[in-house]
Amino acid sequence: MIPLDINGKRQNVDLPGETPLLWTLRDELGLTGTKFGCGMALCGACTVHVDGQPVRSCITPISAVASKKVVTIEAVGADAVGKALQAAWVDKGVPQCGYCQAGQIMSAAALLKRTPKPSETQIDEAMNGNICRCGTYTRIRAAIKQAAAQQGGTR
């Protein structure tokens, strides 16, 4: 039994400790908002927060996050930064297919929490691990800037 704290909910899962957090979330806990794209930390689709840090859940065994605070796309909107980002995403019409966008928002939220007023370069660097095959990057940048401005962080 491994104790997990997902979006503030504590639960024990009966799985081998090396099971990646991604598949635990998606298949065992029904939190399918976190996406699979590569399984090798190459695309960012599976990004979640662990104790506030962005983490690729596809390569993170559940044994490594036991008792740590995991936040997924389903709950990132609970705070002001997440909420502002989600609103900016809708407002700027960022998504095309939308599949990568949960991971994008999780990476963006981690960025804004760390760096409330990111520069263009800081945005590009923080987001470079997140692939969008539909090519929505210019709107992702615009939405991050809008959310940052709304949070009082402009540059």
């Binding site: 298949d27 399918t32 928002i105």
Partner: peptide, 20 residues
Amino acid sequence: KLVDGRDIATGKAQYGIDTR
């Protein structure tokens, strides 16, 4: 706005891979 925009941004949108 996109009809699915909000669901996508909040992780509720359902893709083929999400069926359970």
